[in-house]
Every structure is written in structure tokens, then in C-alpha cells.
Amino acid sequence: MNIEYYIYLALALFSIGVVGVLTRRNAIIIFMCIELMLNAANLLLVAFSKMHHGIGAATNPTAGIDGQLFVFFIMVVAAAEVSVGLAIIVMMYRNIHSVDINFLNRLKH
């Protein structure tokens, strides 16, 4: 497949994630939209990795492998981020009995 199809697909997914972050009020859904944006970036990294492999495979048999390793590390960071973020959301729900981000605009109470 041509690389620009992958670029446009990842752009669409990323923009949907941005729209979700901007329009929704529920902290959990905002968090899920951030995951969506991370996945768009991962998809593009893998597509570019395969593109570079196709170009440089003749001289270097592992050309483009860095992209897929970066995706692996992004997944590691995302998993850590989700565990801490959900703990914060649970604590917030315990304190103010809501996950609406409007109640968080002063970062106290």
C-alpha cells in the first residue's frame, strides 16, 4: 500500500482523538481519546518502518527496525501511564464523587 493512505488514516484517528479530548467532559473518555491518539502514532511508526525496510533492505537487512522497537516502548510507557492515570481518576472520584473535569478546574477542594 502507498504510504500516504497510512498517513491519512493515522491523521484521521489522531484528529478524532483531539476532538474527543476537546468536546467530552468525562475524564475517563478523555483518557481513552489520548490512547486513541497514541495508537494513531504507533500505526504511523509501523507503516514508516515498513517503508524504510522496503527501501533499505538491500544494504541493511534490519533497516527500519527502530520504528517497531519505538512502538514497543511507547506501549510500555502507555501501560504505565494508564495505571497511574486510572489511579488518579479513582482517587478523584472518591473525593468529589464525579469524574467531570469541570470540577477540577482549580485543582483543589
Binding site: M1, I3, M51, H53, G54, A57
Partner: peptide, 17 residues
């Protein structure tokens, strides 16, 4: 107008994955 336009991301072959 990116310079990568028209390049192919190989789908079936290639063993780096």
C-alpha cells in the same frame, strides 16, 4: 506535498516485524 508520497509500505513481505 511530502516527499514520501508515492513510496510503498510493504505489506506482505519483509521480515523485520
Amino acid at each position: 506535498t511530502s516527499e514520501v508520497n508515492g513510496k510503498i509500505a510493504q505489506t506482505i513481505d519483509g521480515n523485520i516485524g
